[in-house]
Design a protein around this nucleic acid. Structure first.
Lengths: 116, 116
DNA sequence: TAGCGATATTCATTTTTGTGAATAACCACA
DNA sequence: TGTGGTTATTCACAAAAATGAATATCGCTA
C-alpha cells in the first residue's frame, strides 16, 4: 500500500528572525540574473515590480555582501546584475534545498499513522 | 565567529496536495485534548472558533480515521475529544518535527556564505 | 537638450484572509 | 417542557497583503 502522506518542508534562511532567503526569493535572484533587470524578472515571475524591488532591497540589506547591483539611467536605462557573491549564495541555497528535500522524502517513508 | 544565519523549516504533512498537519493544527489538537471543547481550545490559542472548527473538520476529512470526535447537546452542552488515533498522530508529528529540527539545526552550521 | 528604458516611490484600489456577531440546532437533565 | 453550554452556520465587516497606475528620477547617447 502506498503512503498517501508526504512531508512538505518549506525552508527559509533567516537572519535576526527575518527571512533572508526562501524559494521564491532565490527564484527571483535567478530571474534577475537571467533578464538583467528587475522589470524583466518580475514580469517573468508574474510578481509586481514593487514586490520584486522590495525583496531585492531587503535581501541586500541582510546580506554581508550585496547579492545584486542595481544601476539607473545610462544607455539601456539601467538594470540589475547578480554579483559573484550572489551567484554563490544561489548555488548554496540550491544545495541546501536539495539536501533538505532528500531528507524529508526519506522521512516521509517512515510515517506510520497512514497504516489504518 | 558566530553564524548569524539559521535555517527555519516549516513542515507540513500533506495528502493530495492539501495540508493535513502543521505546527498550528497539531497545537490545536493538543488544546482540544486539554480543554475537551473547540470553544476552549480556540480561545486558548486566540484563534476564531470558525477557524478552529474548519481546521478540525478538514483534518478529520483527510484522515483515514477520525482524529477528534465531536458531540452536541447533552449535559455539558457537548464537546470535542481527541481519539486514541488522534493521540498517536500527535505523538508521531512531534517526533517527526523534532527529527526535522535536529537536522535543520545541523545543516545550519554548514552554511558557508556567511563567511564574508 | 530631448528621448529612451530602466529604477524609485507613492497611493488608491483590489484581493485575500480572518474575525465578530448573531442565530439555529442539539440533547441530557431537572 | 424549559434550561444550559456547546457545536454548526452564515454574513457583513475588518485587517492585511498584493497589485495597478501614475509619476519622478537617473544617466547615457544621438
Amino acid at each position: 500500500m502506498k503512503n498517501p502522506f508526504s512531508i512538505n518542508s518549506k525552508i527559509e534562511i533567516c537572519k535576526n528572525g527575518e527571512c533572508f532567503l526562501n524559494a521564491r526569493r532565490v527564484e527571483l535572484l535567478i530571474k534577475v540574473h537571467e533578464y538583467g533587470s528587475i522589470n524583466g524578472a518580475s514580469r517573468a515571475l508574474k510578481m509586481s515590480y514593487q514586490q520584486a524591488w522590495h525583496f531585492l532591497k531587503h535581501m541586500n540589506g541582510l546580506s554581508p555582501l550585496p547579492l545584486v547591483s542595481i544601476s539607473r539611467g545610462g544607455v539601456s536605462g539601467g538594470g540589475a546584475a547578480i554579483t559573484d557573491y550572489g551567484l554563490k549564495v544561489i548555488e548554496e541555497y540550491k544545495q541546501i534545498s536539495e539536501t533538505m528535500n532528500e531528507f524529508t522524502t526519506e522521512q516521509s517513508t517512515k510515517i506510520e499513522f497512514c497504516n489504518f
